[in-house]
């Protein structure tokens, strides 16, 4: 994006024009301003790079992984240290290449965060916008329910849910999603309240739009940008909870190369073969750091008031 912009200064002027001729120009111009603010922040760019890297690795796992992630060489390659021939990050107790497992595991990590976001964000958006727009007792009841879920410690609630649903990655995703939506509802409600009585909503109402139409077409789109920031910032926490569930044996089941479960299986060798548990934990740290940096950068770029706080 920045490459094309730098090559032609006229495009830059077109983007930054005070009088955009079309809606498209205005939108692109706004995106460009946000991007410029975002790309000034080097740490945020590093975060973006990490996440893009994660996506690329997940998509091309089959091409990138040098070995099979589930079938190891039990005879010659058990617990080899990092740097051993053909195994850059070493092997685990089943003779499986840790690098290949990490590469395939990135798919699971990505799947968890995408599914949690797809389930939790719309629930939060719906609850928050309906509560904020409807007001009155609907608002009171919905927000009470939200507060009750907020009062629960996330990890403990997820643990209890998975215990009831049974272990497995699908149930872990469901449990995390159920614990994740309340903050989104709070944000969506707060946003909705700020423009519930604004002129454009009144105008749409006078034109005869139904409440459902107003909420879905006019209120929800305006709540998305702050929601995106919050979801991005939450990704790191989601990864950590998913890894924690995996570590306790409640998430992905073996032989799936889920990073948290890999740490759990390496725990027995931690004193002599530290890399079996060490490497996957490092991968989790890097990815969740990436999401934190990206989320911080996005928040600063979208909302300059908060910058530096």
């Amino acid at each position: 994006m920045s490459g094309t912009v730098n090559s032609s200064p006229s495009l830059r002027e077109w983007l930054l024009s005070d009088r955009p001729a079309s809606r498209r120009q205005a939108r692109l111009g706004r995106a460009y301003v946000i991007w410029r603010r975002f790309s000034e922040n080097r740490l945020a760019l590093a975060g973006l790079l990490i996440i893009l890297g994660l996506i690329v690795v997940a998509v091309f796992a089959g091409q990138l992984a040098p070995h099979d992630p589930t079938q190891g060489d039990l005879r010659y390659a058990r617990l080899l240290p990092p740097g051993a021939e053909g195994y850059i990050l070493g092997t685990d107790d089943q003779g499986r290449d840790i690098l290949s497992r990490l590469i395939y595991g990135s798919r699971l990590t990505l799947m968890v965060i995408i599914l949690v976001a797809i389930i939790a964000a719309p629930i939060g958006l719906l609850v928050g916008t309906v509560a904020g727009y409807a007001g009155g007792w609907v608002d009171a009841v919905l927000m009470r329910i939200t507060d009750i879920f907020l009062a629960f410690p996330k990890l403990v609630l997820a643990l209890a849910l998975v215990a009831a649903l049974g272990p497995g990655i699908e149930n872990a995703i469901l449990a995390i999603a159920i614990t994740s939506w309340p903050p989104y509802a709070r944000i969506a409600r707060a946003e909705t309240m700020t423009f519930r009585n604004s002129d454009f909503i009144h105008a749409v109402k006078l034109m005869g739009a139904s409440p459902i139409r107003i909420v879905t077409l006019h209120v929800m789109p305006l709540c998305t940008s702050s929601l995106v920031v919050r979801v991005t910032l939450d990704m790191a926490g989601i990864i950590l909870i998913a890894a924690g569930l995996g570590f306790l044996g409640l998430g992905a089941q073996p032989p799936l190369p889920e990073w948290g479960a890999m740490i759990a299986s390496g725990r027995r060798f931690i004193l002599d073969q530290w890399w079996v548990a060490g490497m996957p934990g490092f991968a989790i740290l890097v990815v969740s750091l990436g999401f934190n940096l990206l989320g911080d950068g996005l928040r600063d770029a979208l909302d300059p008031k908060e910058a530096g706080q």
Binding site: A236, L240, A243, G244, F247, G260, I263, R267, I270, L271, W274, A277, G278, P280, G281, I284, L285, S288, L289, F291, N292, L293
Partner: peptide, 22 residues
């Protein structure tokens, strides 16, 4: 602070056991 937000605490615990205990 950022690392504190991003690190899996059980992993850090295992590593610190290796270092400070073993």
């Amino acid at each position: 602070g950022l690392i504190g937000y991003s690190v899996p605490i059980f992993w850090l615990g295992l590593l610190s056991l290796v270092f400070f205990y073993a």
